[in-house]
């Protein structure tokens, strides 16, 4: 490798490698696998106890950034400051809640010389769970029927049209399965209090839960698609272990999704495959999943490919991957000092 050329500097969010992990640390691990010493990683954090901040062999330097609720302008000013020190080449946001601001900032980041590889706002909105059924109908993809409601009385129509059990979902997160009207009403109040309106009421589909990590080039081509079945699921529904699968129908579904939407960047399709083998798209997460390192481990390094495309390289679609590759997550007590904690808390940098 040419050590005289300036290092690629990549900023990454989602350093919260906790029990419901953000994808940042896995994204960085994938990048380091591919780029070796020719990369400098800048962590972007929200909270002072995100583990990635303190993992100095993972993240070279971390800066705190404002919460998404502070708006795009506050984020831009902070990124401008960080860029004046670090000269960022590429930025990879990894949280659903922050994506809207980052997508809005794409032109401004471009003028700062920071490349991104993100979906457009239209693509981002189309796969939102509020619009998912309409999205599926438009592109001929199997999506469970749903109704978007604002009033508790609308639950009666939902029960009539969708039948029990009903899946009552919050606007951003959480889903509760309701077998009776009483349970559905309780779920409605609980989720609307936590996440606001609307509430999504979805048809219940049973089957095997499969996730697909996908990378689209923004021109309708699927650069990579890796299906994974969760082998061990935590009480928060997160995969603690998973295995890569070989299934042409799942790969075909990923290709159809990317081709229909011209999806740009990484995403995760949450699939429920019924007993009859029919794959329903339950959700589309508009960013890499926390298990993304499995794509690198099985031969299709999606984060590295995204960075290569972001800096203008042509990346041909991957053809093969290792089937039966397993990840098993583990926890580890990392030791740090109060001095380090103080630096990130007081100065917003470490």
């Amino acid at each position: 490798m040419n050590t005289s050329s300036p290092k690629l500097v990549v900023a990454v969010t989602g350093l919260n490698a906790i029990d419901s992990p953000g994808p940042g640390v896995a994204v960085i691990r994938s990048l380091r696998d591919h780029f070796g010493n020719d990369i400098r990683i800048i962590g972007l954090s929200y909270e002072t106890l995100e583990p990635g901040i303190y993992l100095h062999d993972v993240v070279d330097k971390t800066y705190q950034i404002p919460y998404p609720s502070a708006g795009a302008e506050a984020l831009y000013h902070r990124l401008q400051y960080i860029n004046s020190i670090e000269n960022l080449s590429v930025l990879i946001p990894n949280f659903d809640a922050e994506l809207y601001n980052f997508i809005k900032l794409i032109p401004s980041l471009d003028t700062l010389g920071i490349s991104t590889f993100l979906p457009t706002l239209e693509q981002f909105d189309a796969r939102d769970k509020i619009n998912l059924y309409r999205f599926g109908s438009e592109y001929g993809l199997d999506v469970p029927k749903d109704k978007v409601i604002y009033n508790v009385n609308e639950l009666y129509t939902c029960a009539e049209e969708l039948g029990y059990p009903l899946v009552v979902k919050g606007k951003f997160y959480d889903a509760i399965i309701a077998h009776t009207m009483e349970q559905a009403q309780k779920a409605f109040y609980k989720l609307s209090a936590k996440w606001g309106f609307p509430i999504i009421v979805q048809q219940f589909i049973t089957g095997t839960e499969i996730n697909i990590a996908v990378l689209g080039d923004g021109k309708g081509n699927t650069i990579s698609a890796i299906p994974m079945r969760k082998l061990y699921i935590t009480d928060k529904g997160k995969a603690w272990a998973g295995i890569t699968l070989e299934d042409d129908a799942l790969i075909g579904l990923a290709h159809k999704f990317v081709q229909s939407t011209n999806w740009k960047g990484g995403c995760e399709l949450e699939i429920m495959r019924t007993q009859e083998g029919r794959p329903f798209i339950m959700e589309v997460n508009p960013r890499f999943p926390a298990w993304i390192y499995l794509t690198a481990a099985s031969g299709q390094n999606q984060p590295a490919s995204l960075v290569r495309m972001a800096i203008g390289e042509e990346v041909p679609p991957f053809k093969t991957y290792d089937v039966g590759k397993i990840f098993i997550r583990y926890s580890w007590d990392h030791i740090t000092t109060v001095e380090e904690f103080q630096k990130i808390s007081a100065f917003g940098e470490l």
């Binding site: 699968l245 070989e246 039966g324």
Partner: peptide
Amino acid sequence: KNIATSDSGFIFNPSTG
């Protein structure tokens, strides 16, 4: 055709995991 088996009797279905 894609079912993997080993001499030790381990069977793996790559379509379902």
